[in-house]
């Protein structure tokens, strides 16, 4: 029991955790080749109670494998792993009471039944005390604006509504950690906003520790003070998002619409025009720098009609970062898929 409370600063703790898969590959008729793939290669990090961390990396980098070990689905091949003082793979069901999991593309809700029926099952399966269940349900349903939808069969919900429904289902039992795997994938802008706002509030008000994987850089920018980048099973970066931009020299794009077609804008270095199409011009500038001076300068010297800033694509940021860290890129076939 003591262990469960002595770990606030290292609520999630990984010490040289490894996951090695034996992969059989067909190399011909009845011939198979055995290869060892290190999906997770000696990863160590700790997450304090109440932190909100983004866990990102290319497909097949080992993100899901890590999440699966943290939830007790997979057994690590080596190293030490603790969540709330519990060894996930040894005490999977005990841990289940303490964590919430949302798989972005796999709903846990009952397709043909009203949303409320799924929640009643959670109520009983997790043995949530009645008063607490009602309190949590009321609060979550209000925050995620699902009040009118509780009696609607899940199959009739939109993707965004279903995602919010899944988040409620994962939080009814007051988990201390919430894992989210691509929580905003496929959602429209409004739904994304709602989900992000809710997660921010959950983390701030309730102190719930949140670990999320995503392909959407805005998820990270708006939610996470800390980012971990994993590639080839190794932890490549652990720190604030701004630092990630610095390491990666990534660039944002300023799109300006001028009154008429003009020669490329003479922008102050390091900003530069990368494309011109009629009156519209694209300027690249460092992602870590503010856009304001650049915009002011252009507005002062050119007939500006409209402008917008495009954030760098998360894959591009990571790719640049990995490149600048001197990563030796293996061919994609060498990557573990799990």
């Amino acid at each position: 029991m003591k262990g469960a409370f002595a770990v606030d600063s290292a609520f999630i703790e990984l010490d040289r955790v490894e996951k090695v898969f034996d992969v059989h590959r067909k190399t011909g008729f009845m011939r198979r080749e055995l290869r060892r793939v290190r999906a997770v290669d000696s990863i160590s990090f700790t997450v304090a109670r109440g932190e909100m961390v983004g866990y990102i990396g290319p497909n097949g980098a080992g993100k899901s494998t890590t999440i699966k070990m943290l939830t007790g689905i997979l057994t690590p091949s080596g190293g030490r792993l603790r969540v709330a003082g519990i060894d996930p793979s040894r005490e999977r069901t005990r841990l289940a009471h303490r964590i919430g999991v949302v798989f972005g593309q796999r709903t846990t809700l009952w397709w043909d039944l009203p949303l409320l029926d799924s929640y009643r099952l959670m109520h009983r399966m997790y043995r949530i005390p009645d008063a607490r269940y009602r309190e949590n349900l009321d609060r979550l349903v209000e925050l995620l604006e699902l009040g009118d939808l509780l009696d609607v069969p899940v199959r009739q919900l939109s993707l965004g509504q279903r995602m919010r429904g899944d988040i409620v289902a994962a939080l009814l039992h007051d988990p201390e950690v919430l894992y989210l795997d691509e929580p905003t994938i496929g959602l429209d802008v409004v739904s994304k906003g709602k989900v992000r706002e809710f997660l921010r509030e959950l983390n701030a008000e309730h102190g719930t520790t949140v670990l999320l994987t995503t392909h959407d850089l805005q998820d990270i920018e708006q939610l996470c003070s800390r980012v971990m980048v994993i590639d080839h099973g190794r932890l490549m970066y652990d720190g604030p998002l701004t630092g990630l931009h610095e390491v990666g020299d990534s660039e944002r794009i300023l799109v300006v619409d001028l009154e008429r077609e003009l020669p490329p804008i003479e922008a102050p270095a390091p900003a530069r025009v990368v494309k011109v199409d009629g009156p519209r011009q694209w300027l690249a500038f460092p992602a870590a720098a503010s856009a304001a001076p650049l915009v002011a300068r252009i507005a002062a010297e050119y007939p500006l009609v409209d402008l917008s800033v495009r954030e760098p694509d998360i894959e591009a940021v990571i790719a640049k970062m990995l490149h600048s860290l001197g990563d030796t890129t293996d061919p994609p076939s060498e990557r573990a898929t799990a």
Binding site: H97, R127, R132
Partner: peptide, 21 residues
């Protein structure tokens, strides 16, 4: 507010551990 929520969360965590046995 957040602090009381956390303390309540801990009691509930003890209950959960007992329930899971």
């Amino acid at each position: 507010m957040a602090e009381t929520g956390r303390v309540a969360g801990r009691d509930w965590a003890v209950e959960k551990d007992l329930g899971a046995r």
